[in-house]
Each structure stands twice: as structure tokens, then as C-alpha cells.
Design a binder for these strands. Structure first.
Length: 946
RNA sequence: GGGCGGAUAGCUCAGUUGGAAGAGCGCUGCCCUUACAAGGCAGAGGUCACAGGUUCAAUCCCUGUUCCGCCUACCA
């Protein structure tokens, strides 16, 4: 004990620990940061296109710059790092491309909150100053997530770190935008879009999260304009939108109403009359009253119905989703009603409207009703369908090739089940709203000639908004402009010099920025240098695999496939590995508000990075969410400690000569462990090839703990502890060799402890990081040794069981007789007996013989193996008798089951021969054991009577 | 409303081209045996959700039911 660890490469690494002894427990805090720096200094993670080896590239799902490492990141990046480190060790030209995402709305929110605390706002600052401020924020805090990924051990090529707002990536964004616009695949138009009244921006369809909410269904009577005695009853969940109604619809085949089509009804509380139209798409005559109001400016279905019937659009909300007095008056709402509801958000306006309708006698009934509510995915505010001019991608032409690529298997999904999800979404894809009314992001490369579009550029956001804006917002925001849909944009890579129409050079740039996911959609090629044809692009595109969570399948994965195919002419990645969501131990989604968040940084502090990584890998079974419990992490912390102590053991016993022994001269334990090791190598490699991280981790755990530690180390201890042992040099060699191989096998999963331990072993290379990944050694496979082990294990377990059963103290001498009924096993058993004696614990003298001496001998039986135990002194035999009776009962059940089966004519006629032979063999064993057990039972009985 | 996935030991989860049910944690008992008590050894614990069907044989394949997740959707 007490060897000094010294790093042979960088002795300085250990200067502060030169007197450090190998403690009994592994302390990750002492080693992790040190080794990470070592790896970075040696540039092990850096890749060049000119490097040797088949390229293997993964682009990181760029975390938000605002992000802090959460357990989902930890899982995602652990899996990527396992793949990358594994492939690097296999000699591939391995690039893990890292980067962060500017995360438009999220980042803007973070900085805005800061400004609020400082008593100011982005509007007061103005656009340029604000953006400057965000960059400043990014410079100081934006790298936090990068440092946390380093902490996780992520072997990214940090020299290539990218950011979605880098100049290079921004150039790619402009290039893509311009080209798509040139092809007519990007257009600007006034549509109903999802609007977040808190973020004050448009959202794409998938940025809206749906949830069921309790609401009410209001039935309201609309009187016929020319005959108020006839009233149509309309049901709505949102009575506040009725002011914007521009028609009511009935089913054209509905005999109750179709004669009324073409006549008009009066909208209650207004001076307006609107037409009755027939619409077979919108109206289900079976539902409700069969009459539907149409509000094209505030409902997606109604918007489309409005298109079909060329109805006007009346917007009655402002951009804070409050009832807008200007809009209300434009909709001819009665003054008293306007005063009652103006500037109220929908939820507050609803009871007032309910009262107004009641007073008017227009409210027929109100029922409880559940409805789907959309919320902003960033701030959870209820989104409002809102009419405004926006930019869109005409997505169908891009979607088609992306559908085919997956159908043809050019992009594989793992697990495959998600393919249908993907295809279903892609086939039904809607145009993508890509403009956002925020400041932080890629500003749209479109300019308007202020001369030619004079009337179309307004200083207010919406005709109805001026009043509310002036009231609520500071001075600076009033300069905000709205460019009406009819304005003609000039889309270009750089700002235009002169207007092609009028020749003047006064332009205003479109104030909108692009959806964050527009730039992340280019990530696999923009990070590699596109639009330039760089060596990186040629070498590493298409990338090997994308590792991601399901939550961004549509946001990100689908768009990368579409844009990759469009601009690179090839898929961005061959495989998409989709991992699960990490939940808490109760299966709840982790969230700050629930307070059930497991902080990976805290976990790493407490248990070590390797323990966290191994836990996540172990639990990454496909198709099932991960319920992460802290006890599990603790278990793998113990596993790390186990490895640490193996290293201590080996260093302790390494003194003395080592010699390579020819395979056929190796002692049984060495032959056995090498055979098992080769098996583990094969298994781990196969599982990694199939992205079965859980099974690979399981195989490693099983091999290292339960084969290597529990059996191999115990088997060789006597030889190592015997200074005169002629076998010791060979065993030492196998010991070091097998352990080093095992460390390499484990390294992608537990990089820190494997490096730490590896460095303490004799070695020539600089680091385990660049050592080759183990290959299965066919010459190590040894069926003979594996067969012997099975016999050994049985014999040892019997001796151990016997001691426990008899309550036999370890110090008390035990004489054991073994016999084996199977021919040919006798010799093998004799060879194993010294090991049995040693592993059986305590002092044992073991003899193998065919005929046991008569007398006070207790016999135990296990699968054809019999052990006779000479009992000395007083022992409690009742437990042993109970055990034997239990065995007899179990054997009896098994015997009946097997006999029943073998007596079944159909079974013997139809089952495969090997199955039948197996059954027969088992039956023979059971019968044999039965004789011995009965014998033991009566012996014990007699002994107890004495 | 549509689609997908899950239901196996007290807990978290593996597994089986259909042929004697597995791990980790927890629990019980013994052991501080000079690598490791964050350990060792020996145990207890399961009609593999329910009901049918196919088969010589079903936890596994098929059908239906119940419960739980997730994705998706315009039913006012």
C-alpha cells in the first residue's frame, strides 16, 4: 500500500499530489479536471480532413446559449461522446462538431429580464443597443454551457466551436434565404399566424404547445336582420371573438337552415349584419346547433372559411391580445359594450360579455366544455391566432425529397418506430412561418424602397393598435414600423444600392428576424463551411449520426433533412438516434416549478462524472423514458470505486517478474478470463454498433464486476501471494494485459477513471484516449476453460452454501468429499479442487472421490454434483434439513413437469430434437439428485435423532 | 378524434427467431477474509396487466379489454 502515483507524461500533473497515496475510495474531483485539460493540451479531440481513417462526424445538437446543462443535455451528450470516443479509438477520422444556438426568443427574454431589473427595457434601449447588449451577455455568460459540456467529458473539437450567429453561419443563412426566395419557395403574405402576446411575435405551428383546458361553451342567439323573431343559435367557446364575426355558416344540406342561406343576421351588441353562408367543410350538422359563426381574423378554420366565401377580416384584438377599442369601433360594436370590454384580455372580457348578452336576452345557455388551448413553448402564455404580414417557406417541395430519403432508408431512424411519426408529419406539413417580430436573430435579408412603398410602410403595428401602444409603451417603440403585405421587398445577400424601379437609394430593411430553427436547420453543413466548398465539408458531410431527443424531431431533424437535401444534394446524416426523455424517479417531467429537477452538475460533484455517464448509458433503452433515481447513480459510483480498487489490487501485486506465457501453458484462471474478456469485447462492440448503450453498459458491468472481480481476481490471489509460485509471472502478465484491455473497452463510457487508472499502469503511449479499441481475440476463446468454470462455480457455491446452512464458522475446519456422476468430469474436478478450497472460504480440506466414507456425512446435491461434508462438533442441522426438504419438493415438481412433457406424444413428435434431448438430460439430472437428496434426508434425520 | 409506446420481483428496468423467468437498488442472515463495508457470501421475493385465440408448448405471436404515458388534431 501507499504507492505513489506519478503521471509519466506530464509529471507536473501530479506535483500537488506526489505524496498522495492510493486511497481506498476513488475521488473523482481530484482527477477529472486535470485529465480534461491534459486531453485538450494534447489536442486529442481535434480533427483535420487530412487525418487518416474513414471520416466519422457528429454535429452536436447546439444547446441554447442561455442554457445551463440539464439532465437531458447530459444524456444526449454522453451518448454522443461514447460514440465519438469509441470511433476515435477505432482509428476513424473523428470529428465532433460543437456549437451553440442563439435561441432567438429565449435569449431575448433572458436579457430583457435583466433590463427590467435595471429599470429599463429593450424599447428604451433601441434595437442596435439592445443587440449589442445581447452580444455582451453572450460574451460573458454564453460559454457556460460549453464549460459544462467539458465537465461532462465531451470530447468535442472545441477549436471548431460555432455559434449560429457567427459571420460564417449568418452568411449561410442569407444564402439559403435568397436562393429559396429566388426559387419562389419563400414568400411574404398576410396570414393568420400563432401570436404570442407576451413575446409579441409570431410563432410557427410547432412552437405552440397544446393542452386540454376547462372552458365553457356559450350558446348565443343571432336574430335574422329582417325578421328578429327568427333567431339562429350559435355555439362558441370564445364569445369575445363574436365582434369580429363576418358570417355565420350552416351546412348546405341541412334542411333546418339551408333555406336561410343568403339572408343576414345581426351580430348581438353590434350594429352589423352579416350573411348566412353554406359551408360543408366547416359545419358538422350533427354537432351543437348546426350553426357556426365565422371569425376569419381570430380562428384558423374560420380564416380558411373566410377565404372560401371572400369574407372581410375584422380584427378586434391588439397585439397584447386585448380587445382593441379601435378594432371594436370599426366592427360597429355598441359604445356601451366597447366601454365595458376595451383593453381587457380575453379571459377578463368573457364574463362582461356574458353579462351583456344576458341583459340582452341573447344568451341561451352556458355549458362546461373542455377545449384545446395553445401556449407559447417559450413562455407558456396562451397564444392568439392573429392576422399579420409574415414570411413563409413553401415547404411541400422541400418535404417530398425528405420523405423519400427516409422511405428509401437513406436516413435510418433508431428506433425505427419514429419513422411513421416523421412521415405522417411530413406528408401533412403546413407552410412554415419563419419571421419573428423580435430583435435577436438573423434579420431577414429583405429591403424596401421607401420611395416606391411610401404608403405601405406604417409607423404603427396595426391600424387598431396606435392607441394602446401609445398608452403602454415607451417612446422608442412607437417608431416601430409595419410593412404592409403589398410592399415589394428586394431580397438580396447584401443591402441594395439603388432601387431597380425608381433608382433611388433610400431603403428600409425588414425589421423581422428569422425563426431560430431556420439557422439550426443548416447546422450540419453551415458549421462545416458551406456555402464554400471546404475540405471539411467534403470530408465530413454527410455526417454519421445525429443523436437527439424526440422533442425536436420536427423542429430540427426534419428541417435539417429537407434543407440538407436541398442545398447539399445529400442527406445530412445516415442515422438518427432518438433517445428518451429523462424524467424524475416518479416519472414526472422535470421542471423547475415542480422542484423535481435533478441537476447533473450537482450529481457530478457528488458522485463523479463517470458515474453519471454510466447511469445514463445504462438506462438508455430505446422506446422508454428514463426515470432517473439517485440510488441508481450511487450504484454506478460504487462501480467506479470498484474499478479503482482493482487498480489498487493490481498495483499491489505487480512487483516481481512478468512473462508472456504461450496460450496452451496458461493456467485455468487466465484461460478462462481471457475467453470471457474476448466475449465481452464482442458483445460491447455489437451493442454499440446497434446503438444499444444500455446493453453495452450492462455487459461491461457484468464482466468487470461479476467475472473479473468476483471470480478471476479471487482465483489468482493464492498464486500472486505466493512468492515462490512458478505461475506468478505469467499470471501477472495476463492480469495487466486483461485489465488494460478492459479499461480500453470501458473508456468511452467512463473516460476519467479509465484514464486515471490506465496512467498508473505500465504503459508507453501517452493516453488511453488514442489507444485502439479492443478487438475480439479468437485465439482467446476457450470452451474448455469455460466448461471448467461452470463446474467450479457449482462446487464453490455448494461449499459456501454448506457453511451458511450449518452455521459453520469460517475458522472451523471443514472436510469435504466431492463426487461427480458424469463420466469424464472427475479429472477436471480434481484439477479444480484447490480453487474450490480457496474460494469456499474458511479452512477446508477437500477431497474428490467416488465413494464417500460411511458415517456422519452430510450430503448436498447440486446439478449432478454431490458434496459430502464431515460434520465435526455441534452444529444446527435443522436448517440443513429444511433446505434439503425444500430441494426435494422443488425437484419433485420439476420431475413431474418434465415427465409429463416427455410422455406427451405430440411433444416428442413435433418438438425439435435438441429440445427433447435437453428435457431428457434435465430429467435424468433431477432423478439422480433425487436419490442423493433422499439419502441425505434420512441421514440427517438419523443424526438429529441421536 | 387519430397515431405510437408501455404494463415482468417492494422500486427502476432488461429479456425471450415461442421450449426451465434476469440485473441493479431495496430487504433478510452471516462476515471488518491485507483491492474494495461505496465491500464479500448466502438467501427471501414474480399465475411476466386482464380475457380469449393460434401452437405439442405462449411472458413472447394474434384479437379484444383495462390502466398509464407520449405525439398529433379545426369539431364550433
Amino acid at each position: 500500500m501507499g504507492r505513489v502515483l506519478r503521471c509519466p507524461i506530464f509529471p507536473a500533473l501530479y506535483t500537488d499530489m506526489t505524496t498522495r497515496q492510493l486511497d481506498k475510495t476513488y475521488d473523482p474531483r481530484l482527477v477529472e479536471e486535470r485529465w480534461y485539460r491534459f486531453w485538450i493540451e494534447r489536442r486529442y479531440f481535434h480533427a483535420e480532413p487530412s487525418d487518416s481513417g474513414e471520416p466519422y462526424c457528429i454535429v452536436i445538437p447546439p444547446p441554447n446559449v442561455t442554457g445551463s446543462l440539464h439532465v437531458g443535455h447530459a444524456l444526449n451528450n454522453t451518448l454522443q461522446d461514447i460514440l465519438i470516443r469509441w470511433r476515435r479509438m477505432q482509428g476513424r477520422n473523428t470529428l465532433w462538431m460543437p456549437g451553440t444556438d442563439h435561441a432567438g426568443i429565449a435569449t431575448q427574454n433572458v436579457v430583457e429580464k435583466q433590463l427590467l431589473q435595471e429599470g429599463t427595457s429593450r424599447e428604451a434601449l433601441g434595437r442596435e443597443k439592445f443587440i449589442e447588449r445581447v452580444w455582451q451577455w453572450k460574451a460573458t455568460s454564453g460559454d457556460r454551457i460549453v464549460r459544462q459540456l467539458e465537465r461532462l467529458g465531451a470530447s468535442c473539437d472545441w477549436e471548431r466551436l460555432r455559434f449560429t450567429m457567427d459571420e460564417g453561419l449568418s452568411r449561410a443563412v442569407r444564402e439559403v434565404f435568397v436562393r429559396l426566395h429566388e426559387e419562389g419557395l419563400i414568400y411574404r403574405g398576410e396570414r393568420l399566424i400563432n401570436w404570442c402576446p407576451r413575446c409579441l411575435t409570431a410563432l410557427s405551428d410547432i412552437e405552440v404547445e397544446h393542452e386540454d383546458a376547462k372552458g365553457r361553451l356559450y350558446s348565443i342567439e343571432y336574430p335574422l336582420a329582417d325578421d328578429p323573431s327568427v333567431r339562429l343559435t350559435v355555439a362558441t367557446t370564445r364569445p369575445e371573438t363574436m365582434f369580429g364575426d363576418t358570417a355565420v355558416a350552416v351546412h348546405p344540406d341541412d334542411g333546418r337552415y339551408n333555406s336561410l342561406i343568403g339572408r343576414e343576421v345581426r351580430v348581438p351588441l353590434t350594429g352589423r349584419t352579416i350573411p348566412i353562408v353554406g359551408d360543408a367543410i366547416l359545419v358538422d350538422p350533427e354537432f351543437g346547433t348546426g350553426v357556426v359563426k365565422i371569425t376569419p381574423a381570430h380562428d384558423f378554420n374560420d380564416f380558411e372559411a373566410g377565404e372560401r366565401h371572400r369574407l372581410p377580416r375584422l380584427s378586434v384584438f391588439d397585439h397584447h391580445a386585448r380587445l382593441d377599442p379601435v378594432g371594436l369601433r370599426a366592427a360597429a360594436v355598441e359604445q356601451s359594450a366597447v366601454e365595458a370590454v376595451e383593453l381587457l384580455p380575453a379571459a377578463k372580457a368573457r364574463p362582461k360579455i356574458e353579462q351583456l348578452l344576458r341583459d340582452r336576452g341573447a344568451l341561451v345557455k352556458v355549458e362546461d366544455h373542455t377545449m384545446a388551448l395553445g401556449r407559447c413553448y417559450r413562455c407558456k402564455t396562451v397564444v392568439e391566432p392573429y392576422l399579420s404580414p409574415q414570411w413563409f417557406v413553401n415547404i411541400k417541395p422541400l418535404a417530398q425529397p425528405a420523405i423519400e430519403a427516409v422511405e428509401q432508408g437513406r436516413v435510418r431512424f433508431i428506433p425505427e418506430g419514429w419513422i411513421n411519426n416523421y412521415l405522417g408529419w411530413m406528408r401533412d406539413i403546413k407552410d412554415w412561418c419563419i419571421s419573428r417580430q423580435i430583435w435577436w436573430g438573423h434579420q431577414i435579408p429583405a429591403w424596401y424602397c421607401t420611395h416606391c412603398n411610401k404608403e405601405l410602410i406604417l409607423e404603427t403595428v396595426h391600424a387598431g393598435m396606435a392607441t394602446t401602444e401609445a398608452k403602454d409603451l415607451p417612446q422608442a417603440s412607437r417608431t416601430r414600423i409595419t410593412i404592409l403585405p403589398k410592399a415589394k421587398p428586394i431580397v438580396a445577400r447584401t443591402a441594395p444600392n439603388r432601387c431597380p424601379t425608381c433608382g433611388k437609394n433610400r431603403f428600409i430593411r425588414d425589421p423581422d428576424v428569422l425563426d431560430t430553427w431556420f439557422s439550426s436547420g443548416l447546422w450540419p453543413f453551415s458549421t462545416l463551411g458551406w456555402p464554400d466548398q471546404t475540405p471539411e465539408l467534403k470530408t465530413y458531410y454527410p455526417t454519421a449520426v445525429l443523436v437527439t431527443g424526440l422533442d425536436i424531431l420536427f423542429f430540427w431533424v426534419a428541417r435539417m433533412i429537407m434543407l440538407g437535401l436541398k442545398f447539399m444534394g445529400d442527406v445530412p446524416f445516415r442515422d438518427v438516434y432518438i433517445h428518451a426523455l429523462v424524467r424524475d424517479a416518479e416519472g414526472q417531467k422535470m421542471s423547475k416549478s415542480k422542484g423535481n429537477v435533478i441537476d447533473p452538475l450537482h450529481v457530478m460533484d457528488q458522485y463523479g462524472t463517470d458515474a453519471l455517464r454510466f447511469t445514463l448509458a445504462s438506462m438508455a433503452s430505446p422506446g422508454r423514458d428514463i426515470k432517473l433515481a439517485e440510488e441508481r447513480i450511487e450504484g454506478y459510483r460504487n462501480f467506479a470505486n470498484k474499478i479503482w480498487n482493482v487498480a489498487r489490487f493490481i498495483l499491489l501485486h505487480l512487483e516481481g517478474p512478468r512473462a508472456a506465457t504461450p496460450p496452451n501453458e496458461r493456467p485455468f484462471p487466465d484461460r478462462w478470463i481471457l475467453s470471457r474478456l474476448s466475449n465481452a469485447v464482442t458483445q460491447v462492440t455489437e451493442e454499440l454498433n446497434a446503438y444499444r448503450f444500455d446493453r453495452a453498459a450492462g455487459a461491461l458491468y457484468q464482466f468487470i464486476w461479476h467475472e473479473y472481480c468476483d471470480w478471476y481476481l479471487e482465483l489468482i490471489k493464492p498464486e500472486l501471494q505466493d512468492p515462490a509460485s512458478p505461475l506468478a509471472p505469467g499470471i501477472r502478465q495476463t492480469l495487466v494485459e486483461s485489465f488494460e484491455t478492459m479499461l480500453r473497452l470501458l473508456h468511452p463510457f467512463m473516460p476519467f477513471i479509465t484514464e486515471e487508472v490506465w496512467q498508473s499502469l505500465p504503459h508507453e503511449e501517452a493516453s488511453i484516449v488514442t489507444r485502439p479499441y479492443p478487438l475480439a481475440q479468437p485465439e482467446w476463446a476457450d470452451r474448455e476453460a469455460e466448461g471448467s468454470f461452470v463446474l467450479l462455480e457449482r462446487a464453490v457455491k455448494m461449499v459456501r452454501t454448506a457453511r451458511v446452512l450449518l452455521n459453520y464458522p469460517p475458522a472451523k475446519h471443514l472436510t469435504l468429499y466431492f463426487s461427480h456422476e458424469l463420466g469424464g468430469e472427475e479429472r477436471r474436478l480434481r484439477m479444480l479442487l484447490p480453487h474450490v478450497a480457496h474460494l469456499g472460504r474458511g479452512k477446508s480440506e477437500i477431497v474428490a472421490i467416488e465413494n464417500m466414507p460411511a458415517g456422519h456425512i452430510l450430503r448436498l446435491v447440486l446439478e449432478g454434483l454431490t458434496v459430502g461434508i464431515v460434520v465435526e462438533g455441534d452444529v444446527d442441522l435443522h436448517k440443513a434439513l429444511d433446505r434439503i426438504r425444500k430441494q426435494i419438493a422443488e425437484g419433485e415438481k420439476e420431475r413431474q413437469r418434465l415427465e409429463g412433457k416427455l410422455n406427451n406424444a405430440e411433444f416428442t413428435a413435433k418438438a425439435p430434437p435438441d429440445v427433447i434431448a435437453d428435457h431428457q438430460e434435465r430429467l435424468e439430472g433431477v432423478r439422480r439428485d433425487r436419490v442423493m437428496l433422499r439419502d441425505s434426508e434420512s441421514q440427517l434425520d438419523n443424526m438429529l435423532k441421536d
